[in-house]
Nucleic acid binder design. Structure first.
Length: 274
DNA sequence: AATTCAGCCTGTGCGC
DNA sequence: TGCGCACAGGCTGAAT
């Protein structure tokens, strides 16, 4: 579900609420969501720990605790985190409940239950392979035009597949990849190493732009996504192609097409994207 | 090493 | 109201 702008928005809406708060109680309704260690150990190690800081890497949220452990949460497709006041009701998809020393709650809800939670010492974060092997993020100092050009030159998969690969670029997902390719005017099925320097530069700028805009708009809410306070984002009102199948292209009026690329539903303008 | 793809889950929306 | 199917914002691990 959430991509980097959504996870960053969640981080921003939660950080002031949870930093400095002690977790006094945890209820785990679906133990299999806890991937490391056992749910029982997870519960014991978190109880009575204080959240020192809340960070993000790609689509992972990292709650650094005062016992040198880190609570790592990946929301996958439908995971949600809500910070709520005591007495707030919650639905049957709420699988973990963290209670803080002021009585407030952090709810982890997940319809499809694909989300994952870990608790590891800082020195053992390497156990989360998707976290340690993540590529540079858009808008970061490491994500340079040279990096993108060099990386693309070695790849012959579809550009859509490359942009979705978290090992190569961290944080992009299906929405923002489709949007970046639309802004850059590049066909999602183009072989990565076929892009020339100009196209790579357009793509570089487009990737940074869609991520920055997504964050500025508080993320994209289609169905499940909400921020840490339960609020919807507004980037869905600024999309060029995603979810706009058969609607006119904002640039040329041609109907937006949809097809499967890299195993994902892909939206594009057949006239503007070459 | 790079790439593809089934599998993991449960829900919503549509055509009939 | 029900049934079957397509689709869903992501990632992992196995096979090629």
């Amino acid at each position: 579900m959430p991509e980097m702008p959504e996870v960053e928005t969640i981080r921003r809406t939660l950080t002031g609420k949870v930093e400095g708060r002690k977790i006094t109680r945890i209820e785990i309704g679906l133990p299999r969501l806890v991937k490391w260690p056992t749910a029982h150990e997870f519960q014991a190690l978190i109880t009575d720990r204080t959240v020192v800081t809340l960070q993000r890497r790609g689509k992972y949220l990292l709650f650094y605790l005062d016992n040198d452990y880190v609570l790592v949460i990946h929301l996958r497709m439908t995971g949600r985190l809500y910070y709520v006041n005591p007495g707030t009701t919650y639905d049957r998809f709420t699988h973990l409940i963290f209670t803080f020393d002021n009585g407030d709650l952090l709810l982890y809800a997940d319809t499809r239950t694909l989300g994952t939670l870990y608790l590891l010492p800082q020195a053992e974060l390497w156990r989360i392979s998707g976290l340690v092997s993540m590529g540079p993020e858009p808008l970061s100092a490491e994500f340079t035009l040279d990096y993108l050009i060099n990386m693309l030159s070695k790849r012959k998969a579809a550009i859509k597949s490359i942009l979705l690969n978290q090992h190569l670029i961290g944080g992009l997902g299906n929405i923002y990849v489709d949007e970046a390719l639309a802004i850059a005017g590049i066909d999602p099925e183009r072989v990565a190493n076929s892009l020339n320097a100009t196209e790579a530069q357009y793509l570089y700028q487009a990737v940074n732009q869609v991520i920055a805009d997504g964050i500025a708009h508080g993320g994209t809410t289609f169905r499940d996504y909400r921020d840490g306070a339960g609020q919807s984002g507004s980037h869905q009102y600024h999309l060029n192609v995603y979810g706009r199948t058969n609607e006119p292209c904002h640039r040329c009026g041609t109907a937006i097409s949809r097809k499967e690329v890299a195993g994902r539903g892909t939206h594009y303008c057949p006239n503007c994207q070459k």
